[in-house]
Nucleic acid binder design. Structure first.
Lengths: 303, 303
DNA sequence: CGATGTCCATGCCGCCAGGTTATGGAGGCG
DNA sequence: CGCCTCCATAACCTGGCGGCATGGACATCG
């Protein structure tokens, strides 16, 4: 009997939620669609997987048997997918470089140029990741190497080489009262609403809210964004302010948004990262070396 | 990205055959359908999996990566399917009893009756297996316990308890010259064409061709069948003759087919079998005990 | 050199599975 | 008693999959 992984994901979602309606919302499908799919799965297997009641869907015994194994199968497929895509990019002589906005900013172009020089025939394919994914696609296998900002969740399982540090500044609406100040002590920003990254990004989000430099003072969240354009809009609209690397002032200049130096927050560290599985991958090593070289020459100037 | 296991099976088939046309035949689909499916898989993955040429389809590097892992994934799904179905039958208090035609013949009904007595509330669901599958569904998880004839392929990995032995006779067309004889020495049948089981059944097929009792004399195959009705038709039509357990004379009597005793072939051994995983399954053990009890009383009379 | 055979690709069509919206029915709850 | 929650059903639409027929490229052979 054949099955679509989509159907399995549907099943797992319903099993986890114990509720068709919630699972449907989580899966971005309508509830009747889920009803039909689950029913069809039960028909194909010739057994009931759930017992229905007004309070939701409870797994039956065979349902539990399936629910125990299905996640591993889905993970297995994801893994295969990652490996196949990695092989595809290798075969096409493409290095997939993930980066989060502000990853290396000015350094990015020289790094790619140096890489092209050192690896003729290869192409660095830049892939911007959302802030919901601050490993820039490394942890989900969408990138071979990544330009990131530390700290980020999952960095312990990856190889991380620091490149340079850079002071953090604050981005605020041009109309903001503090926008006229030349330098702002971070303490003066404690009560300001902040434009934050999505919750999934964990320590990364906390770092850009400077949670450690607030001496316990709580954070006010004015908006949540996961990409630069939303972020700039939110700031320009006055939904909140945000910390950013100094280079953002040049890289993400925009009418209505001003950047001001801040005292009392640690500088941001940029790094290049890759998977342990790629420790012996000469192309990845070359890219990392390009990063180090450029970081120690051109970029210090930019700072 | 989601995928249907059917699509993966298609891919694996093409990878193994190295040829769309042959793979299509093996999968019982048309060649254009396969062409489209493979092309779609490549589109979804964003990479070529095969290089096409007049001589067929050769795996690319990413194709090889996928082809290495896909079979394990498919096997994993099959395994999950087996376990889920097993759980389903357990939950429904159904014991799935596989049998090959002639499995236990007369003994079958008393066994089931005894099982119903010993396990009220449970139901023995009989499932006849084709001769292409002489473990009667045990090895593919479609049965919890099986009534079989020894030897059969894969029996070493299963628990097998012999029940009784029974002489083998020969089934031939009523019009066959030898049909008038009372008892036939097997040697007289060496040059007759035989109606055989499919090749997959390996040692089982050989046993019913009495390969060991021919002193090296080659077998002539007149027809290949995988179920009793085809088998009886083939014999009645004179395509060949075949060995069968004595009880087949009563169980598979049919106009145009006669059964005669044969000397010089070993008797057939009937057995009950189950999976090692079910060693501790009390229902399976009960069924096996029912088989032993009935085999040692009622069936000896039948013989 | 043309005939033939073997590959894979393409075009066209019918059908079904999966999705959506709207609605119904059955219980819990304030 | 009205309302909310949750699952099931109905009606409808669309896209994907499969089938057949056919085309195009190339090798082989008489």
């Amino acid at each position: 009997m054949d099955i679509d992984t989509r159907l399995l994901r549907y099943f797992v979602a319903v099993a986890e939620e114990g509720n068709l309606t919630h699972a449907a919302r989580r899966l971005f499908v309508s509830q009747p669609a889920l009803t039909k799919q689950i029913k069809q799965l039960e028909t194909q297997l010739g057994t009931a997987l759930f017992t229905r009641s007004r309070s939701g869907m409870t797994l039956t015994e065979p349902g539990r048997a399936l629910a125990e194994r299905a996640p591993a199968l889905l993970a297995g497929w994801d893994q295969i997918l990652r490996e196949t895509k990695a092989a595809a990019s290798r075969a096409a002589r493409v290095l997939r470089v993930g980066f989060v906005a502000s990853g290396a900013n000015e350094a990015t172009q020289p790094i790619v140029a140096e890489f092209s020089r050192r690896r003729p025939g290869w192409r660095a394919q830049m892939r911007q990741a959302s802030w919901a994914n601050p490993s820039a696609g490394l942890s989900d296998g969408e990138a071979d190497v990544a330009l990131v900002r530390l700290p980020f969740p999952g960095q312990d399982t990856l190889r991380v080489t620091p490149l340079f540090t850079e002071p953090r500044c604050v981005a605020l609406a041009a109309a903001h009262p503090l926008a006229t100040r030349d330098v702002i002590p971070f303490r003066d920003l404690w009560d300001e609403p902040f434009v934050a990254a999505p919750a999934e990004s964990g320590p990364w989000r906390d770092y850009w809210l400077a949670a450690d430099e607030r001496e316990g003072h709580p954070v006010r969240i004015g908006a949540v964004t996961d990409q630069p354009d939303d972020w700039l809009n939110a700031i320009a609209n006055g939904y909140g302010i945000a910390l950013a690397p100094e280079s953002a002032a040049r890289f993400y200049a925009r009418p209505g948004v001003v950047y001001r130096p801040v005292t009392g927050v640690s500088p941001s560290r940029a790094a290049v990262a890759w998977t342990p599985a790629d420790d012996d991958n000469p192309v990845v090593r070359d890219f990392a070396n390009c990063c180090l070289e450029v970081g120690s020459s051109g970029c210090t100037v930019a700072l």
